[in-house]
Design a protein around this nucleic acid. Structure first.
Length: 727
DNA sequence: AAAAAAT
């Protein structure tokens, strides 16, 4: 029984999700914007509720889920850590972090629940739950969903439950003894639902907490905007331009870099031949070798080289080589000097978009933007490579929106209109971040966006789709999920963007991405972007792109970077204490760990040591992930310990130290992790901790990344460490 | 190993 109920409950929980960050905001804007019809229709019902829950939103849920999730953690017995968590006073400390307090409560709930066993009769109240199933059904209809909210009335009842519970608490003792616990397993199953309730009960509390969270208030939409500033900062990264200005010089330097020709990756590869020999291990290389063969052929054929590949100096050329994909590639390297005096308007963007870009902190285009915008507007498929923070998001978002507007005017506001553009990202955080940039631009011309990613209730997402959305930004899993549910139709998608495209082609990601791309309109426009775009995307290019234009920005190499790299050779047993000493500083520090468990453990250790630290990894529920990242962004904590979920694309201002507690497996990962610092032309330091026996491998990796780094043997308390901490 | 759906 309980099990059967569980699903229902879980769904119910999803349905009522208050936590739609954007749905609420969007709803409001829409009402203002135009289709009152839509609004009036469901918006009204939803709006009020949304308002209520909007405030709570994700935060509230995060709390809820976190608790509910924990049971799930049971699955992760592997993570001794979690078991530890309860133990870790550190987290109890987190109570400070609004969330945890709730969690403390939850244990109580657990206790309560046994009591509830007695209550269960009351749960008969759960009849509500019976209703909930209905909710699920309703959800399909959405309109029905809200009716379900009607159920909330029940929720009002719940409070009473709460009241009852205290009494029950008394009962519990007896219950506690009772089978209840036996039942608990069952309850646990139910809990999901309870999780909801508790949450709801808690929510008020959460809400209260949130007020504290200055961040969240902003959060709904604002959080993003808060972040936007960050984007702006990125654009400061425009500040990067300055660097780029420098780059020209670098370019000059590059000539010196015969290797660099490989540009990022490829030059190395030229070198790699040697590496390859060393690294037989890399399965990838075989492919590379193949490619090279192709390249060689190309060169032979027509001296044809594309920037996409090794030759940077080469201008657009057509390859007649073996690699079909490559043949069509037209590589163009743009320099800062090329775009001096160019405006977004010159590139073909309309007034509204140009004005919005200025508001976002992008008054004039960066090189990657100047390079790709015209081609995107011309309808071409594009491959773009630009350093992280160099403005890639606007490079594809602005022209994409311009095209959508041109093709459909602003006329099509039909309900449930099918989305016409799709942006795929590898992580939820990145999808969220991208939307923060895309949404305001889209709104400026009357288009709507929505995020479609997992870890949050799908109700809002589905609700947005039913109201009608033009641009979808999301991750593969939930998108496929909604497609399978028949709630998302990608057949009208005429522009698809893959951010971090090379990463999206990694094992495990490629197939879902291919399946999704196949659902989009045949021969429609595709844009692939990444800071480390390499041949790894060849398979996608071959199947989905036609005569793509390949762009990159000259001078964006490590030599032009503002990042200082250091490798510390340490004893494994000293790792924790050394990290503790390194983070004993003022600025923001991002620590990368190879595993979720270690990220969690390290965060706990640091907290126990009195350092304001938190973690970010896939074992956390989405609400906490979002919140924890926000804590670093807002400065509530100075240290974030993360897995590679935070390696790509994530922008947080002023991270001046990146510590790699575990060395990355590949050079691209190193580049992306390092790219979290040294942004906007600011200085940054990357410290990698490795045992002596890894030195050789680390040197090889740095060579591939074309990074120069010092190697220093260090033990806790060494001057080399304190010097870093004083940066 | 991690990420990406949910349970």
């Amino acid at each position: 029984m309980p099990t059967s109920k569980k699903p229902a409950v879980g769904r119910a929980a999803k349905n009522y999700d208050p936590s739609y960050s954007k749905g609420g905001p969007k709803g409001a804007p829409k009402g203002g914007s135009k289709s009152p019809g839509h609004r009036g229709y469901r918006a009204d019902e939803g709006a009020p509720k949304k308002q209520r829950w909007n405030a709570d939103e994700r935060a509230a849920r995060s709390g809820e889920r976190s608790s509910s999730d924990r049971p799930a953690y049971g699955d992760r017995p592997a993570y001794g850590n979690r078991t530890e968590r309860p133990a870790t006073g550190g987290r109890t400390e987190r109570p400070a972090y609004n969330d945890r307090a709730p969690r403390n409560d939850r244990p109580a709930y657990n206790n309560d629940r046994p009591a509830r066993g007695g209550d269960r009769p009351s749960y008969g109240d759960r009849a509500p739950r019976t209703d909930r199933p209905a909710y699920n059904n309703d959800r399909n209809d959405r309109g029905g969903d809200r009716p379900s909210y009607g159920d909330r009335a029940q929720r009002s009842e719940r409070p009473s439950y709460n009241n009852d519970r205290p009494a029950r608490g008394g009962d519990r003792p007896s219950y506690g003894d009772r089978a209840p616990r036996t039942d608990r397993s069952a309850y646990n199953n139910d809990r999901p639902s309870y999780g909801d309730r508790a949450p709801r009960t808690d929510r008020p509390a959460y809400n209260n907490d949130r007020p504290a969270r200055t961040e969240r208030p902003s959060y709904g939409d604002r959080a993003p905007r808060t972040d936007r500033p960050a984007y702006n900062n990125d654009r400061p990264s425009y500040g990067d331009r300055a660097p780029r200005t420098d780059r020209p010089a670098y370019n000059n330097d590059r000539p010196a870099r015969t290797e660099r020709p490989s540009y990022g990756d490829r030059a190395p590869r030229t070198d790699r031949p040697a590496y390859n020999n060393d690294r037989p291990a890399r399965g990838e290389r075989p492919a590379y070798n193949n490619d090279r063969a192709a390249r060689n052929d190309r060169s032979n054929d027509g001296g044809h080289s594309s920037n996409f590949y090794p030759d940077r100096d080469s201008k657009p050329k057509f390859a007649g080589g073996d690699d079909v994909v490559l043949e069509r590639l037209e590589a163009i390297a743009t320099t800062a000097a090329d775009v001096v005096g160019v405006t977004f308007g010159d590139l073909g963007l309309g007034g509204n978009i140009v004005r919005e870009l200025a508001l976002l902190g992008a008054p004039s285009p960066f090189p990657i933007q100047a390079a790709t915008i015209p081609d995107v507007l011309a309808g071409r498929d594009v491959l773009g490579r630009g350093k992280t923070g160099s403005g890639k998001t606007i490079a594809f978002a602005a022209p994409m929106i311009e095209k959508l507007m041109e093709n459909n005017g602003a006329k099509d506001r039909k309900m449930a209109r099918k989305p016409r553009a799709l942006i795929l990202a590898p992580t939820r955080e990145l999808a969220l971040q991208i939307d923060r940039t895309v949404q305001p631009i889209a709104r400026s011309v009357g288009l709507f966006t929505t995020q479609i990613y997992g870890g949050v209730p799908q109700y809002r997402q589905v609700s947005a789709l039913q109201r009608g959305v033009d641009i979808i930004i999301g991750t593969a899993g939930r998108i496929e999920d909604l497609v399978e549910q028949g709630r998302l139709d990608l057949s009208e998608v005429v522009i698809t963007v893959l951010d971090e495209a090379d990463y999206m082609c990694d094992l495990g990601f490629l197939e879902p991405v291919q399946r999704i791309l196949r659902l989009t309109k045949k021969n429609s426009q595709r844009l692939l972007f990444s800071a480390t775009l390499d041949k790894g995307v060849a398979s996608l290019v071959k199947e989905f792109l036609t005569n793509p234009a390949v762009h990159e920005v000259a001078g964006e190499d490590q030599a032009s970077s503002t990042i200082d790299h250091k490798v510390l050779l340490i004893e494994h047993r000293d790792k924790a204490s050394i990290i503790g000493q390194l983070v004993d500083r003022q600025g923001k520090t991002l620590i990368f760990s190879r595993t979720r468990a270690y990220a969690e453990q390290l965060a706990d250790q640091l907290e126990d040591a009195g350092v304001k630290a938190t973690s970010l990894h896939g074992d956390l529920n989405q609400a906490r992930r979002t919140r924890n990242l926000q804590m670093l962004t807002s400065g509530r904590v100075n240290v974030l310990v993360a897995t590679d979920v935070a390696a790509r694309g994530i922008h947080v201002d002023d991270i001046d130290l990146v510590i790699q507690a575990d060395m990355p497996d590949e050079y691209k990962t190193y580049l992306h992790r390092a790219g979290r610092t040294g942004r906007a032309g600011k200085s940054g330091t990357v410290v990698t901790l490795i045992p002596k026996q890894r030195r050789r491998r680390m040197e090889d990796l740095l060579d591939r990344a074309e990074i120069e780094s010092s190697f220093t043997t260090a033990t806790p308390g060494d001057a080399s460490i304190t010097a870093l901490a004083n940066l």
